[in-house]
Amino acid sequence: MQPVDQILTPAALRHWPLPIPDGDKTSRGRVLVIGGARTAPGAVMLAGLAALRVGAGVLTLAVAESVAGPVAAAVPESAVLWLPQTPTGSVAGSAAESIRSALDTAAAILIGPGLDDVDETAELIAGLVPDAPEHLPIVLDAYAIGAIGQLSAATLEALAGRLLLTPNHNELERLLAASDEPADSDDPQHLLAERYQAVLSSDNRIVAPSGDSWLAPAGHSGLGTSGSGDVLAGALVGLLARGASLTQATCWATYLHAAAGDRLAARVGSLGFLARELLDELPLVLTELQA
Rank of each mutant, 00 (worst) to 15 (best):
T121W: 02
A160I: 09
V31L: 07
S202E: 05
E65S: 14
G229N: 07
L32E: 04
L46C: 04
L282K: 14
M1Q: 10
Y255N: 03
A56T: 10
P17V: 08
A68V: 01
L163R: 13
P41H: 05
L256S: 02
A68G: 02
R14D: 08
C251R: 15
L215G: 07
R53I: 01
E181I: 06
A122S: 11
E194G: 08
H257Q: 00
L124M: 10
L264M: 06
D203T: 10
P10F: 09
S245N: 06
V58E: 13
A158K: 11
G57P: 05
A253Q: 09
G234H: 09
H169P: 10
A160W: 14
E173A: 11
Q248S: 12
P87E: 07
Q150E: 10
R38Q: 12
R38Y: 12
Q6R: 13
D262E: 09
A291C: 09
Y255W: 09
D203V: 09
R263E: 11
L200N: 02
A218P: 01
P137T: 02
L271H: 15
Y255M: 03
S185K: 07
A154E: 11
G127E: 04
V58W: 15
A126V: 03
A132V: 10
L165G: 06
L223I: 03
L200T: 07
L240K: 01
A154R: 04
A62W: 14
V4H: 15
A216V: 03
S101E: 12
P76S: 02
R195P: 12
A208M: 08
R53D: 01
A244W: 00
L191D: 10
A92L: 10
L81K: 07
I145W: 03
G55P: 13
L46K: 02
R14V: 05
A95I: 13
E65F: 09
A96T: 12
A74I: 05
L124V: 09
I7E: 11
A183C: 08
G229E: 04
P137W: 00
A183W: 11
G112F: 01
A73S: 12
V268M: 10
R100M: 06
E194D: 13
A291T: 15
G112W: 01
T39D: 13
A74P: 12
R100P: 06
D104A: 15
S213I: 01
L223W: 14
G261K: 05
G42I: 05
L49W: 07
